[in-house]
Write a protein that binds this DNA or RNA. Structure first.
Length: 604
RNA sequence: GCGCCGGUAGCUCAGUUGGAUAGAGCAUCAGGCUUCGAACCUGAGGGUCGGGGGUUCGAAUCCCUCCCGGCGCGCCA
């Protein structure tokens, strides 16, 4: 019960974090906060100091006719004041200081909204802020340097990664990037089971293929492998069938056997499956996994192997702790977790009657270890098929003293592939599945990542292979965004060519930007920090992908229409301002793409 | 059967934590531009937000119920 592993050790100490305080900047336009104060003051004057001010919202309405911001305070107060919302709204408007330089116009609309128009200059202030913040625009400090661990992928080294793992890899990595941008100290971690039955079966599978290749064993017939109900032959043509009933059937198993045969010849005939075969398979599979992860720009700070939990005594320790909390009992030779005591729907086996723990016990031990190592909170990214197990780990860990609500799960559904309008059947058993490697080779890392995060984690992700492979880049959303970014560089190249100086943050004057489409782009740029924060807090990177597509959808047409607003014109002030706008758009697109781990090329 | 997640335009999906006339991409149709930062743009059609009740000023969003799809309900991981 103390398996060895050839694989990366679980670190016994907390990984070193950068001590330097990362420079941060939140140049979010103060406009909204000042408006917030303005409304707060108005409401206080209306309500008096004894009444509570409701949690009103200020949001940018979809419809530009409804102003730059809309406030819902009047509707929220209707019941409290026993007055019609529109009347209250009128009173609010009367209390606002209109024309003071912040608010240009305020009016009551619809069921009782107060719509606000800001003076155009308010948006112009944004430009120098964005340019000054540069790569930090959109970053913030709400994480307050707290340490959080994101655990994801965590596939066992029994074979290649599936598309589901690919989605999880990109999802987890993007969540980590978002958290880093919001001031958290993030550790990316990959946990894998390399002890126990699965790894034994893996070793046995390789051994069987090895013996088959040497003509000392017979492979089980395809038909028998495909049908779990079929009768399993002991021997075939006078040779023993050694391949395990539940063995790993992939071609990579034979490859591993082949490699062992090339290296060791026939000398491994008496080697047990658990020995060299298992170790070689684990090594080889892990090498493949890491190569695949590299190809999609997913990397980890820590690879944590289950086996180390055994050698470090964590498993025993955890079991003891559970015993002392009276959370286990023996039944029919097995050790059970009293999960119903914790409010769960059934009890679970922790140690099988064979004496070997199930995966649940190491899982609990591992989560305890996370907090022992100092993480303040923990995010587990998991596929929907593992969702049911999470409450057991969480409740049990909390019962043993892990801080409540500090273990969080992000669950995602599976990936399906659509090609030529029909769904591609993914079958692991048959050889008809598309691998991450194949997909990445076909569409590239950038498109792969963008497609994998553009949907929310809940619900299936249908990967449209045709759209992803679309060479017409205006149709491919990933490339559309990249193109918008590249175009800002194209404009700069043109400017340099014409001897026009690019504006810098300290001297940018955006006041020449007066067209509605220019103000709209500025507004959208101003929303970026909120998008990042919301995506980080909700662990929903897809918001960033959507936002980028929308900004690109404003920018590309703007630049496109070279007659109505050519960036480089003979009006120096206008040229200056528009070049500034281009730089601001570039900053946001570049930062947003970075959060998704997608490259921002200077030219396509 | 129970639990979790989904159901929004022909297709794939967003929808700012309950806001105003429900949006985007693709596809379709009708136009523009002919390489100048055109690898683009303008416009149109397309909806019982799965059905039904409820909560309230107001619901795709919250509650109840039913229907459909995915996943899970092991001494597998």
């Amino acid at each position: 019960m103390k398996p060895s592993s050839a694989f990366p050790a679980l670190p016994t100490q907390i990984p070193d974090f950068l001590d330097e305080i990362r420079p941060r900047c939140d140049p979010r336009p103060i406009v909204k906060e000042r408006l917030q104060q303005e409304f707060g003051g108005a409401l206080e004057r209306i309500l008096g100091s004894d009444q509570e001010i409701p949690a009103f919202t200020l949001e940018a309405p979809r419809n530009p006719d409804h102003g730059d911001f809309a406030c819902n305070a009047a509707m929220l107060l209707a019941k409290q004041l026993r007055q019609a919302p529109r009347q209250i709204a009128e009173r609010i408007v009367a209390e606002l200081s209109v024309g003071s330089g912040l608010i240009e116009r305020a009016e009551v609309a619809g069921p009782g909204f107060v719509n606000i128009w800001l003076s155009g200059a308010r948006w112009h202030e944004l430009l120098p802020q964005v340019l000054a913040a540069g790569p930090r625009f959109g970053h913030c400090d709400i994480g307050a340097n707290r340490s959080v661990q994101v655990e994801f992928v965590s596939a066992n080294p029994t074979g290649p990664l599936t598309l589901g793992h690919g989605r999880q890899g990109v999802l987890g990595d993007c969540i980590a990037r978002l958290l880093e941008a919001c001031g958290y100290r993030v550790t990316r971690e990959y946990y894998f089971n390399n002890a126990g039955r699965q790894m034994r079966v893996l070793g046995e599978s390789v051994r069987a293929r090895y013996l088959e290749q040497l003509g000392r064993a017979a492979p089980p017939p395809e038909a028998v492998l495909a049908d779990p109900e079929a009768e399993w032959p002991e021997t075939l043509d006078g040779l023993p069938v050694v391949f395990p009933r539940d063995g790993y059937q992939g071609a990579y198993i034979s490859d591993i056997a082949e490699a062992l045969r090339a290296e060791h010849g026939e000398s491994l005939i008496d080697e047990p499956g658990e020995g060299l075969f298992r170790i070689a398979a684990e090594e080889r599979n892990f090498a493949d996994i890491r190569r695949t992860l590299d190809s999609i720009r997913v990397s980890f700070d820590v690879y944590a192997g289950e086996a180390n939990l055994y050698s470090d005594g964590r498993i025993e320790e955890t079991l003891e702790a559970l015993r002392s909390h009276n959370l286990v009992y023996d039944f029919e030779g097995a050790v059970w977790l009293r999960a119903t005591e914790l409010g769960l729907d059934r009890d679970r086996v922790l140690v099988k009657s064979s004496g070997e723990p199930t995966y649940l016990l190491p899982d609990i031990a591992y989560h305890l270890d996370k907090f022992r190592r100092g993480f303040e909170s923990v995010i587990d990214v998991q596929g929907a098929d593992h969702g049911d197990q999470f409450p057991f780990v969480r409740k049990t860990a909390e019962a043993l003293g892990c801080p409540a609500n500090s273990i969080e799960i992000v669950m995602h559904q599976f990936v399906t592939l659509t090609r030529a309008g029909t769904q591609v059947k993914q079958s692991t058993r048959r050889a008809t599945y598309v691998t991450i490697d194949e997909l990445v080779e076909a569409v590239g890392t950038d498109v792969f990542r963008f497609f994998m995060v553009q949907r929310r984690a809940d619900g299936h992700l249908d990967f449209d292979v045709d759209l992803a492979m679309e060479a017409d880049w205006k149709k491919n959303p990933a490339m559309y965004v990249q193109y918008a970014h590249a175009r800002t560089h194209g404009i700069e190249r043109k400017a340099v060519e014409q001897g026009v100086a690019m504006p810098d943050a300290a001297h940018i004057d955006a006041s020449a930007l007066v067209l509605p489409e220019e103000i709209e782009i500025l507004k959208r740029v101003s929303e970026f920090p909120e998008v990042v924060e919301r995506a980080a807090e909700g662990r929903e990177p897809h918001h960033v992908a959507y936002y980028l597509r929308e900004l690109a959808g404003l920018w590309n047409p703007y630049v496109q229409d070279g007659t109505r607003h050519r960036v480089l014109s003979d009006d120096p002030a206008l040229t200056h301002a528009r070049l500034g706008l281009a730089l601001a758009v570039r900053v946001v697109l570049a930062n947003g793409l970075a959060l998704l781990g997608v490259s921002a090329p200077e030219q396509m």
